[in-house]
């Protein structure tokens, strides 16, 4: 009896999470203008989507910012994590606490504060400001991911390397980096997805010269959800699945080695 209740409960939770997504994907193939009734299978919304230059342009911009922001944030965030883990310096405690605060503070606060900052230094809003903003909010997530893995290690491993004659640089390159690589990769993927679907911060810090996908979609759905948006969402969904799957595969291979 309890097992049936448990199974039902779990099914319900998953249904709640995934049915809307499923509906969205199904309606991307609906041969109808309005999304409420099913009129038969069609790929016309995908065709229409690929004919929409501005939407595609925004998508390319989004991916570009995502890749760049993830890469920069991963580099900076990883080094920060290693520094916090490895060295005792003034303000270390403050820094590691600040990292956690940054992840829970409301996006709107970060958006506005960055906007104020960019205005203060008279930076024109556009690609650069957007990239800087994305790098900023991705760093703490990378740092926390990497720090989590570092804390799981036997502290004597680094000492053993020192004992065997490794310099600081060699310790980083040959011991720490290879051991945290899965976390670094996970941090990159996390940053990429965060950057790709950010609306709130981006809304404040980008200008009309540089359009990105989430903002574009946001603008489009104000006039009603078009089936094109469904099609786009379906593509993004498949893309996300691929990334998550790749990440899982990578982690698994590492563990088996």
């Amino acid at each position: 009896m309890i097992r049936i209740v448990k199974a039902a409960y779990v099914s319900l939770v998953y249904a709640f999470l995934y049915v809307p997504i499923l509906v969205l994907v199904v309606f991307a193939f609906n041969d109808s203008r309005v999304a409420t009734n099913w009129q038969g299978f069609s790929l016309r919304w995908f065709a229409k989507l690929f004919g929409n230059e501005t939407l595609l342009g925004a998508a390319v911009n989004s991916v570009l910012v995502g890749v760049l922001a993830a890469t920069l944030a991963t580099a900076i965030g990883t080094l920060a994590a290693v520094a916090i883990y490895r060295y005792r310096f003034l303000g270390r405690k403050v820094l590691s606490t600040a990292v956690y605060i940054l992840t829970i503070q409301p996006d709107i606060v970060m958006g506005i504060s960055l906007l104020v900052l960019f205005m203060a230094v008279r930076m024109p809003l556009g690609f650069t400001t957007l990239l800087l903003a994305h790098v900023t909010f991705c760093i703490p997530f990378v740092t926390i991911t990497v720090l989590g893995r570092l804390k799981g290690f036997d502290t004597h491993i680094v000492e053993a390397a020192q004992d065997l004659g490794a310099s600081e640089y060699e310790i980083f390159l040959r011991i720490i980096l290879p051991m945290i690589l899965p976390a670094v990769a996970a941090g990159w993927l996390l940053s990429f997805t965060l950057s790709l679907d950010d609306v709130m911060v981006s809304f404040f810090v980008t200008g009309p010269s540089f359009e990105i996908l989430p903002l574009k979609i946001y603008a489009m759905v104000k006039l009603g959800v078009k089936p094109e948006v469904n099609a786009l969402s379906a593509i993004l969904l498949v893309l996300t699945f691929c990334i998550v799957f790749a990440a899982q595969l990578m982690m698994k291979e590492r563990r088996e080695k």
Binding site: D154, Q162, L164, S167, M179
Partner: peptide
Amino acid sequence: VPPHRREVNTVFQSYALFPH
């Protein structure tokens, strides 16, 4: 003198082998 410049080596209780 730091550990990497000493002609001594240590066997740790936890072994501390490099897992990778």
